[in-house]
Simulated assay, not measured.
Amino acid sequence: MLNKPPIPANRPSIPIRWIVSDLDGTLLDSRQRIPPGLVRRIARFTEAGGAFTFATGRTLRSAMPYMSQLGVTAPVILFNGARIYDPVTGTYLTEHRLDPADVRRVMRLHEEDGAVRQLDLLLFHQERIFCAALSERVRKQMDKDGVVAETASPERMASLAGQATKLMLLGPESGLIRFRQAEAAAKLNTVRSESGLLEVLPTGINKSVALSAMIRMLGAEADDFAAVGDNLNDLEMVGSVRNGFAVANADPAVKDAAAHVLARSNETSALLDVIEFAESTWAPRPGLPRAD
């Protein structure tokens, strides 16, 4: 069920063949699972000619179980847009890295500012994650994402500055606010994907930029796509396409940017309504499967 008119009467329906969904807070429920009924519905959508994929802040290793569960063969946006992965060839189609100077700037700020030092700093290098210590916050985040972090000295982390995909800061809101207000962080590309977490991405990178690159690679059009999200790292992506969707539990800014706000949340399989919407734009076909 949609809170906004699904297809305005004053324009023709444009077939939506692609659905690009965020994972946490959108496709996944609070237990980090895709409900069985939604898994079956996505399978019916792809069998009928649609394509389903993800745009997530997660690493490949973290996203892979869900890719396997749904049999995703379309390109997948990872690291909040810093990489696009092709499941068919097992290779990255695009890769972006942080400016080494930005990495060192963050590390200095983390070392010198007492409030910022309260935060856990993680460095993502390829599929490995490094941090100074395995705090309870780090363990909890790694458990949620299904990955493992390794401890490393500041010198070791600094040596990886030229090959870092992103940085992550975990901790109290006061520390995150202090970090964002620091002069050294003023020009960094930062994004919030959930409470108590801030990421630093390569300059000019977000999910929308990655989606545009993917659309060009596929030789498709933006109107062929529906994009779905819930948090601020989805803001640009959801607002960049005609058929942007915000789930019921989405951040207010994401709802404002979306063309459609869903009545269901991630806990009640909001993607069911997006699939129904997409199929409603297709030409009538005998025997087309409908939503549960």
Rank of each mutant, 00 (worst) to 15 (best):
R242T: 13
R242S: 05
N243R: 11
N243V: 03
N243Y: 15
G244R: 08
G244N: 08
G244H: 09
F245D: 08
F245Q: 11
F245R: 14
F245M: 09
A246N: 07
A246W: 12
A246L: 12
A246M: 13
A246S: 11
V247P: 02
V247Y: 03
V247L: 04
A248K: 15
A248D: 14
A248F: 08
A248I: 04
A248C: 08
A248Y: 12
N249E: 00
N249W: 00
N249K: 09
N249V: 03
N249C: 13
N249D: 00
N249T: 11
A250T: 04
A250Q: 06
A250Y: 01
D251A: 09
D251M: 03
D251L: 02
D251I: 01
D251T: 10
P252I: 13
P252M: 12
P252E: 06
P252W: 01
A253H: 12
A253E: 12
A253Y: 11
V254F: 01
V254C: 10
V254G: 08
K255R: 13
K255M: 15
K255H: 07
D256L: 10
D256N: 14
D256C: 09
D256I: 02
A257K: 04
A257N: 11
A257W: 11
A257P: 14
A258N: 11
A258V: 08
A258S: 10
A258E: 06
A259E: 13
A259F: 13
A259S: 14
A259N: 08
A259P: 01
H260Q: 12
H260K: 07
V261G: 07
V261R: 13
V261H: 12
V261F: 01
L262E: 02
L262F: 10
L262D: 05
L262H: 09
L262V: 13
A263R: 13
A263Q: 15
R264F: 11
R264Q: 10
R264C: 04
S265M: 06
S265T: 11
N266T: 02
N266C: 04
E267L: 06
E267I: 02
E267A: 07
E267R: 06
E267Q: 14
E267H: 01
E267P: 01
T268Y: 00
T268I: 02
T268E: 15
T268H: 10
T268Q: 15
S269K: 00
S269R: 00
S269I: 00
S269N: 01
A270Y: 01
A270C: 09
A270K: 08
A270N: 05
L271T: 08
L271D: 02
L272V: 02
L272P: 01
L272N: 15
D273N: 05
D273M: 09
D273Y: 09
V274T: 09
V274N: 09
V274R: 07
V274L: 11
V274S: 07
I275A: 03
I275W: 06
I275Y: 05
E276R: 14
E276N: 10
E276K: 09
E276G: 15
F277S: 04
F277Q: 05
F277D: 04
F277R: 05
F277M: 11
A278M: 05
A278F: 11
A278T: 05
A278G: 10
A278D: 07
E279W: 02
E279A: 03
E279K: 15
E279M: 14
E279P: 00
E279H: 01
S280D: 10
S280H: 07
S280M: 04
S280C: 01
S280K: 02
